[in-house]
Nucleic acid binder design. Structure first.
Length: 193
DNA sequence: TGCCAGGCCCTCTTTAGGGCCTT
């Protein structure tokens, strides 16, 4: 069985290196082409949100103030994802906040990230762009909840990831799509992608 | 809204520049 943990963060900005902080995390477990479990957590990292971020995510300072500490939520999220390979839409972004959050609880990431943007560019190269909203609309993926909230975006990314796996399986006529296949497609090393 | 960052990718490239994508 192949299980992946699809991760999405909402944050105060683009980089923890300049003081930005995670505000919410959503994780969806995908096993053999099916969503099998979900995790969502608002977290209080002791920061205030800019007006732009409040509008962008719908998350408010009041919601953050009521939320549990960032370290508590990150510890739960880390346990939930376990050692499954992680997947995110633009993984370089979520990886920074995942690693930063783990650092705050004295842990280090043991697994690698796959990037659904890079995979989408290989597999669905005909689309005008590869933003998550465009992928959902173009591929008619299920979308429950509000864009730019962590669990809704993680679920959308999970459906995209399932579609990517199915597309690779069909085009390469594989009995099974392994992690190695996904890495090879991401690096453009196999197939006609 | 777009700036802040940064990895990836493409090309009018590789002694570089700029767009994409995430909040």
């Amino acid at each position: 069985m192949h299980t992946y943990a699809i991760v999405d963060f909402e944050t105060t900005g683009l980089s923890p290196k300049v003081g930005d902080c995670a505000t919410e995390i959503g994780i969806v477990l995908v096993r053999d082409g099916q969503i099998v479990d979900r995790y969502q957590g608002l977290m209080n990292g002791g920061v205030r949100l800019s007006p732009f971020i409040k509008r962008y995510t719908g998350i408010t300072n009041a919601m953050i103030q009521k939320a549990r500490p960032l370290t508590t939520v990150m510890a739960e999220a880390c346990a939930f994802a376990g050692t499954y390979p992680l997947v995110a839409h633009n993984a370089s972004f979520d990886r920074k906040f995942w690693d930063d959050g783990l650092g705050k609880i004295g842990q280090r990431r043991s697994q690698e990230f796959l990037c659904s943007v890079r995979l989408s560019r290989r597999v669905f190269s005909n689309l005008p762009d590869h933003r998550l909203g465009t992928m959902v609309k173009s591929l008619k993926l299920p979308m429950s909840g509000q864009f730019h909230r962590a669990l809704a975006d993680a679920e959308a990314t999970a459906h995209l990831f399932i579609r990517i796996q199915a597309e690779i399986k069909a085009r390469l006529q594989l009995a099974d799509v392994t992690h190695k296949h996904l890495l090879a497609v991401q690096k453009q090393k196999i197939g006609t992608f």
